[in-house]
């Protein structure tokens, strides 16, 4: 078991998959000679050459489509979009083609396409570089959407995504590339579906994904220490398809739920989880579930306002206390 950073885990997954399968290639802006904005492809250009590690022009929609076209012929492209904010420009190819070609061909043509995007709100990058777009991707039928919260999952999910015959969007986080964590030395695959219970508890379930997992874990520690509340933390991890059974199973045990999302609330992960709770286990709930989420505004540049727009562990603690009346 080695400790490594999130970016190193992504790099390792790229390297192993490219070494194994010559049909795997990577493309994106500045991923080759410059090694990637977040270093996640460092050294691959030297190792695999410019036909397999492709520096692209600023043409997001077209190189995404090029990835899709190549995937139709059996290649396994890993397309990196430098920031999730630029994937808006690639949405036509992603939504109209990647997500639908398998279906439109009557299941005859596969599209094993992977898109990696750093998402989330980082540090004063302004309104056009701070969007969280999970709600957009998870609303598209035909895509799989996963979000690693740890180096272990950053590795395991990319490995699984490359082997998957469906198009997969992996949402990473700009603030997590230097996050350290244990990653097993032996090869492994994190499933593209299913939740993971990261902390077992009896009183309330905190549903989280990507960076909000860390807020939930931090909040759970406070809740235990300062308020004697035993919170369960569930990493949703796969946002599409969502693990309905896994979500319901936790709430059948704890009877209370708080969803923690970095995105603004309308039409998001929180509303989806609450709909699932409603449909799967409404009568197991002891209280109406709550959402902790970003404010419904573009992210302000000023640091204090930026932080105020995004949730944190303290807000999770407050929501749980409200839910339990403590």
């Amino acid at each position: 078991m080695a400790e490594m950073m999130y970016w190193q885990a992504i790099l390792r997954a790229h390297d192993e998959e490219m070494a194994r399968d010559p049909l795997v290639f990577a493309m994106g802006e500045d991923i080759g000679v410059a090694g990637g904005t977040y270093k996640a492809t460092t050294g691959l250009y030297a190792k695999y050459g410019d036909q397999r590690v492709i520096d692209t022009p600023i043409s997001e929609n077209s190189y995404t489509g090029i990835g899709v076209g190549a995937a139709m012929l059996g290649c396994r492209p890993i397309v990196e979009i430098m920031s999730v904010n630029f994937s808006w420009l690639a949405m036509d190819q992603l939504m109209n083609n990647a997500a639908k070609i398998h279906f439109m061909s009557g299941g005859r043509i596969r599209c094993p396409f992977v898109m990696r995007v750093p998402g989330g709100t980082a540090h004063q990058l302004g309104a056009q570089h701070s969007a969280r777009m999970e709600k957009v991707f998870m609303g598209i039928a035909g895509l799989r959407v996963v979000t690693p919260a740890t180096p272990r999952d950053a590795y395991g999910l990319l490995k699984s995504a490359v082997r998957c015959d469906d198009p997969v969007v992996i949402i990473e986080h700009e603030s997590m590339y230097n996050l350290k964590g244990e990653v097993p030395d032996a090869e492994f695959f994190t499933p593209l579906e299913g939740v993971e219970v990261l902390r077992s508890g009896r009183d309330v379930t905190l549903f989280a994904y990507n960076i909000s997992v860390h807020w939930a874990l931090e909040a759970a520690d406070y809740l235990a220490k300062d308020f004697g509340i035993d919170a369960e933390v569930v990493d949703l991890r796969a946002l599409k398809p969502m693990d309905r059974a896994g979500i319901a199973a936790s709430v059948r045990k704890t009877h209370r739920a708080v969803v923690v999302e970095e995105d603004e609330a309308p039409v998001g992960v929180g509303s989806e989880v609450m709909a699932i709770l409603n449909e799967e286990c409404f009568f197991d709930l002891d209280a109406p579930p709550l959402r902790v989420h970003a404010l419904d505004i573009p992210i302000p540049y000023n640091r204090r306002l930026e932080k105020a727009a995004i949730p944190n562990a303290a807000q999770v603690v407050a929501a749980v206390r409200k839910l339990l009346g403590k």
Binding site: Q124, G126, A127, Q128, H129, P300, Y301, N302, L305
Partner: peptide
């Protein structure tokens, strides 16, 4: 831009 936009806006 009132501190909302920043260097790029």
């Amino acid at each position: 831009s009132g501190g909302m936009g920043g260097s790029m806006h």
